[in-house]
Amino acid sequence: MIEFSRVGHRFGDRVVLSDVELTLPERRVAFVGANGSGKSTLARMINGLVLPDDGKVLVDGLDPAKDGRKVRKHVGFVFTNPDSQIVMPTAGEDVAFSLRGSGLSKAERARRAAEVLAEYGLDGYAEHPAHQLSGGQKQLLALCAMLVLDPAVLVCDEPTTLLDLRNKRRFAELLGTLRQQVVLVTHDLDLLDGFDRVVVLDGGRVVADDEPEPALRYYRKLAE
C-alpha cells in the first residue's frame, strides 16, 4: 500500500506538486498527465529519489525520508531511457550489480543474474555487451536488474517511450504478469488494459482518480 498525505513539492519557485492525497492499495496503478504535470515527481517519491517538501509518503509503512535504503530495496524503479539505467558493461554484470549487497558470492550472483535474464527472454545474453542490445532488450535488461531483487513494488517511469510498437506491447504484457504492485507513469493510454486505477494529474494536482475508463475520458477532455 502506497500512501501520500498532503504531499507538496517545489523546484525553486515552481510548484510541482501540491496537496496530493492518495491511498493506493491496488495492484496496478497508473499516473497519467501531460508533460510537467508532476507525475514523474510523484512516482520518484515512492522510491525516495525525490523527497516531499510538505506532507508525507509511506510505502507499505516505510517512510522514504527516514528509511531511504529500506525503501529502495522494497521498490524497484525502471526509467525511460535504459541507457542511463544500465551501469555495467555486460548484461550479466549489470543484473549482478543489483545483488552486490546481498552477501552472495560472485559466482552465485552471476548464476542468479543469468537465471533472471533467461526468465524474461534474454536467455544466453549474460556475456553480451549491454550497449549492443536492441532498445527493447535494453529495457528488458533494466527490468531484470530490478526484478532480481524481487521488490514488492515496481515503479516504471514511461518505460515504453523509446520502444517500437511491438516491443511496447511485449513490455506491457510482461508488466501484466508480474506479481509486484506496479505503478506506471505514462501518457500512452494503450498500456492501461487491465489496470485497476488511473490517477490523472494536471499542474501538480490530482484532477481525476478512478477506474481506467472514466479517468481516461476525463483526461482526453482535459487535453482538448
Partner: peptide, 11 residues
Amino acid sequence: MPDVPAPRVSL
C-alpha cells in the same frame, strides 16, 4: 520525452 524533474538524490 518525459518531464524529468530535478532529482534530489543522495549525494
